[in-house]
């Protein structure tokens, strides 16, 4: 299941990574997708929405964001784990 979420995230981030001259190999678990400049906040929400669609699951985004870790690669995967 985790690998599916990871693969989905990689697919969805592919064009963004290209824009920054990066590849999925550069995605560290601790990397913050927003603070790193990879995504702006709207693009992050688009990513969450696309992941919800891809996994067929709704997440409590506001709560996850308040808790703090949701915008990291690890945090986002946990949200859908």
């Amino acid at each position: 299941m985790t690998t599916d979420v990871r693969a989905l995230m990689h697919t969805l981030l592919a064009s963004r990574l290209t824009r920054l001259g990066m590849s999925v190999d550069d995605l560290d678990d601790d990397m913050d997708l927003v603070r790193s400049g990879l995504l702006d906040s709207l693009a992050f929400i688009d990513l969450v929405a696309a992941m919800e669609q891809g996994t067929g699951r709704q997440v409590d985004l506001e709560r996850a964001l308040e808790a703090g870790e949701a915008t990291t690669v690890r945090g986002l995967q946990r949200l859908f784990a």
Partner: peptide, 8 residues
């Protein structure tokens, strides 16, 4: 700055 946690 991005507003993701702005309401809280």
């Amino acid at each position: 700055p991005g507003g993701l946690r702005a309401a809280a």
